[in-house]
Write a protein that binds this DNA or RNA. Sequence first.
DNA 1: TGTTATGTTGCCAT
DNA 2: TATGGCAACATAAC
Length: 280
Amino acid sequence: MPELPEVETVRISLHDKLVGQEITWLKVREFIGVLGGDDPAAFSARVVNRTVASTRRRGKYILIDLDDGSVLVVHLRMTGNLSLLHRHDEKVRFEHLAIGIGDEMSLRFADQRKFGRVVHLLPQEAGTIESKVGPEPLSASFSAEVLTSSLQRRTGPIKSILLNQKVIAGIGNIYADEALFRARIHPLTPANELSVLQIHSLHRAIRQVLREGLLNRGTSISHFRDGAGQEGENQDNLKVYGKGRIGAPCPRCGQPLQFLVIGGRSSHFCPKCQRSSLTY
DNA sequence: TGTTATGTTGCCAT
DNA sequence: TATGGCAACATAAC
């Protein structure tokens, strides 16, 4: 479900309603594992009575900064969902954690598949997130040169490399396929065989598809909703993702799109527009 | 009714 | 270190 645009959409939808609010109570439901092995009572003791200082996003992580320098780290994985409801609203389906926000609201974390986590990092642990992810693709520091240097020593298929969070933070299966289509690069191309022009094209395409995803407030193919329960619109903007299996026509050339499993992930592309050794 | 796929990541083996 | 396979889990769609 959630890649950079979706995660950022959730964060933005919650930010103003969380900042400055006190965490007043906390309830862990049946799935205690949501806390990543932490003890519910200890977790609660560290978090309750703290105030939300700010929210941030790093890759696919939502970071909720508390006033003591500690951080609530939320990862939605495949089917995780954050929603801000009134405190007396019914428990939502698959709810694993409810966090009281001020006197009236509660932030619910729900996750059908139980892969997602909400962990609390002490101030001295807050840096561990940084060691898990690479550059932010929409930041000014993510240049074509930065991308070049991380691709040139890798031999794996570019599709798989784009999914590596240490190479670029926040790209998932949808935006990887969309970026490769825009850059006209075959997903199986070994990363270190891309030409300078192809890397520049890919760099531009990555930023473009992520920005569009963000402007459309995320891609809602099945599960995705923002913090207010709103669906995104970017599913209408997808050019190839999900279309290869049915052989839908390429929006550029009309050829049937193709489907491949690459690194265990479904991959959709145009065999004509995205050729393996395209020289400019 | 059974099988298969699902947008993520970490662990394990090579 | 880089890469690939697979498991974690629940459900919908075939």
